[in-house]
Nucleic acid binder design. Structure first.
Length: 182
DNA sequence: GGCGCGATTCCCT
DNA sequence: GGGAATCGCGCCC
């Protein structure tokens, strides 16, 4: 599987979010490969996006959003969950990212279920996804354009995309920046 | 230094 | 449909 190159992520987060649908997220741990096709994403901007972690400028947590595109921005929330983003922004903007919310499992589905205490559901929520693929703070800043322990690669063509308001946010609900494979 | 709450999930009713 | 779990971050005092 060939990783997407860095130029892919040097665009508006919304364009990257759409573009990531149908791509493959790959994770390798202890010789086991887990992968799945990305089927839901959300775009987050910078100071212009009130729902974004980058809205009020750079902090210790969100600094990855201001760093090199194509790297992972992983954050910890609700005292127990991790969510994974890919840093993406067009040259002029100073920060941005795309939240990976769901995948359709391919390789290693059994291992992913095992990582979720035997639960079958691993494809319908951002924190379920990170738990299934064992993605945590250790992956903060990891380069997803290289064929390493965590990366994103080409995938199958998809038919169509639906755009909706982002999930679980209070502001910026006017933007249709949640994207799903129809 | 203290406090409120979150880009969530699970389990109960 | 609602509340608990659980804690680091971000903002205010």
């Amino acid at each position: 599987m060939t990783p997407l190159d860095r130029a892919f992520y040097s665009r508006e987060p919304a364009a990257v979010a759409r573009g990531l649908l149908g791509k493959r997220l790959a994770r390798k741990i202890d010789g086991i490969t887990m992968s799945g096709v990305i089927i839901e994403t959300e775009a987050y901007g910078s100071s212009d996006d009130p729902a974004s972690h980058a809205h009020r400028g750079m902090t210790g947590r969100n600094r990855a959003m201001f760093g090199e595109v194509g790297r992972a921005y992983v954050y910890f929330t609700y005292g127990m969950h991790y969510c994974m983003n890919v840093v993406a922004r067009r040259g002029r903007s100073d920060a941005g990212a795309v939240l990976i919310r769901a995948i359709r499992p391919e390789l290693g589905a059994a291992q992913m279920s095992k990582n979720r205490n035997g639960r079958a559901a691993i494809s319908d929520g951002p924190a379920k996804l990170t738990q299934a693929m064992r993605i945590s703070a250790e992956q903060y800043g990891e380069d997803l354009t290289r064929r390493g322990a965590l990366y994103i690669a080409e995938g199958p063509r998809i038919r169509s995309i639906t755009a909706s308001p982002r999930v679980g946010i209070r502001r910026g609900t006017d933007l249709l920046w949640n994207f799903k494979v129809k």
